[in-house]
Design a protein around this nucleic acid. Sequence first.
DNA 1: GGCTATTACGGAAATCGTAACCATG
DNA 2: CATGGTTACGATTTCCGTAATAGCC
Lengths: 295, 295
Amino acid sequence: MDPHLLRTFVAVAECGSFSAAAARLGYTQSAVSQHIAALEHDLGTPLLHRRPVVPTPSGERLLEHAGPILLRLDAARADVRRTIADPPGALTIAASPLAASHLAIALREVRRSRPGTEVALTVCGRAAVTEGVAAGEFDLGLVDGIAAPSDPLRLSDAGSLRTTAVAHEPLVLALPKDHPLARRRGLALHDLANARWIDAPDLAAPLSTLRTAAGSDAFRPALTYTGTDLHSLLTLVAAGHGLAVLPQSAASAGIAAVPVTTPRLVHRIELLHGHLTEPAATALASVLSGESDDE
Amino acid sequence: MDPHLLRTFVAVAECGSFSAAAARLGYTQSAVSQHIAALEHDLGTPLLHRRPVVPTPSGERLLEHAGPILLRLDAARADVRRTIADPPGALTIAASPLAASHLAIALREVRRSRPGTEVALTVCGRAAVTEGVAAGEFDLGLVDGIAAPSDPLRLSDAGSLRTTAVAHEPLVLALPKDHPLARRRGLALHDLANARWIDAPDLAAPLSTLRTAAGSDAFRPALTYTGTDLHSLLTLVAAGHGLAVLPQSAASAGIAAVPVTTPRLVHRIELLHGHLTEPAATALASVLSGESDDE
DNA sequence: GGCTATTACGGAAATCGTAACCATG
DNA sequence: CATGGTTACGATTTCCGTAATAGCC
């Protein structure tokens, strides 16, 4: 299972086409075909249906592993290269949108403990944060997600990463102010399984997470929102296009926010780091989780 | 970074010798030398000192990644092959020694929910359990370890595994009955940093774990015990050969057991599964963590 | 018939073993 | 000088591109 073969396999699965994957990888269709054939021969089973190109059950299984493996391979290379490169001037920090509120605190701590350090900030989707930190593209990451009160976040590819909890916050259901449920003091998620949901996986709680949390197959999106702008999502909710689950602090004036009481879930922010020295990271984490809202 | 190269790299690092690694892998010394040279060329830095053969700092870094990567590769292959093999007759369960107390409960639940299923049980070291489950050798694993009260276990290679907490229990220090500390009601770990310790990494809390938990470089073993037999470890402790940290329930008549109060740590048992359907696993986990001591 | 995957084939490159070579203890 | 890692070199295999072939809308 050569990583090259795995890489073309995921490319083909993503593109849904041998030729498109070939173009993306700089191979010929023939080479891609040979790669897939080699993988299928090696594993002794078809991995893709052709025409249309869709993974078989075995292929699905392999796909689940391939991404993390390739990511970890990159992380290993980045990690080794870092030991030979001279220490970078800039410290890079990435955060998912709903974790970005902690960026300012993190930044202040960095300025205090390492004055003069050049800092680069990035806000991007959760996957991009974890992958970037794993691959050494960022030094630090702040990701948010939902989890049971004292459980860690189920980060997809956190294989080589250290994580530290940084903040917890109640979850609320965001809904239009005139919604029948808007006056409720609290509600159970699974009563809303068949409501109109907006899936904003890069921003709010992804519906797939709600499904696993609620142990239900419902929570199907009426609308999918790709983007990281909180304000526009809230506008969509206010206009009645659907519901979303958010951390309490993300709610704003235009919408109603009702606490989600069942199941017991919280919005959680974690600090990720792949290679920072342990003391530096824990110092930062303690500042992030403490109330350093002085000045 | 071909997996073959990584595999020979870890083999060389473990053997401390090119030729020994070659013998182990069925290559010639020459091939091994070429593998290492290729890796070093690819990463642009020496990975091993020669004569004696010891990893460089870069090599250390790579080693940290190589094991999990190779394991995950095996797990992927096993996972795919499972989708094409007909469903196995027997359900295989592995447990580390101090988690084995829960085997009986797990077994009862399996017998109840899937009557007639053939079950195979194995008790082995923690690493063997996690690696075996990851590689698909076992369907289920029960591992124990120590962690902060509601933290997950820091499992080395749990990349592709789901984990569920199953049991918590106080930690005690096992010491001879006539030891000066034997009458204490509780004690702080770091006061004991320089005591005579027995390291029994496959059985009790490994000293390396204590070191990270206590943030200390002390806790050096006066004696290392390789094996999984609780009784013989307790005999060693009773005879005054050294101390060990155990879950409360593992203590027995022959020794004194004093609760470890600082830092706040518990003995924890987790259920691992790599590929079982989620409902089946959570059902099992809930039975394991509940008090199902009826009948 | 157009689009796309597969197969056939040839040249380039990589892989591994034999054997000669060197360095260290 | 002996043990053990490195280098040289050649046979074998693998890999990838071109081009011809075959299967599905």
